[in-house]
């Protein structure tokens, strides 16, 4: 499973993106569960955020969903922070 996260906006206005490929990971099932839940809770189009709030684009194997601070679900929050931290 390929999980991509793109974060835009924020006070700095600096875009960040990262990707995790779960295929070689021992914890792949946990990633997949998290990614599917985060995706299911996302929107089909970018939701209106707040000025300077982060916007997120989450793509899992070609399927994309959108979310924006400060209204992420717990799974979305965990997924975007792990992908941006651990991903390449």
């Amino acid at each position: 499973m390929r999980i991509q996260v793109r974060r835009t906006g924020g006070f700095a206005g600096i875009e960040r993106r990262a990707e995790v490929d779960t295929s070689d990971r021992p914890d792949a099932p946990a990633w997949q569960t998290l990614a599917e839940q985060a995706l299911a809770d996302g929107r089909a189009t970018p939701p209106p955020g707040v000025p300077d709030g982060f916007s997120y684009e989450i793509t899992v194997d070609g399927r994309t969903a959108y979310a924006a601070d400060p209204r992420l679900t717990d799974e979305q929050r965990e997924l975007v922070s792990r992908v941006l931290k651990e991903g390449a």
């Binding site: 006070f11 700095a12 300077d52 709030g53 982060f54 400060p70």
Partner: peptide
């Protein structure tokens, strides 16, 4: 707000400040 959160924003009724990740951003 959050862990190593790289942002600050006004959520429509209050201010929110992250601590920054320490690598790129410091405390907002």
């Amino acid at each position: 707000f959050g862990e190593g959160y790289d942002n600050a924003f006004w959520n429509g009724e209050q201010m929110v400040f992250g601590d920054g990740d320490g690598e790129v951003f410091l405390d907002f």
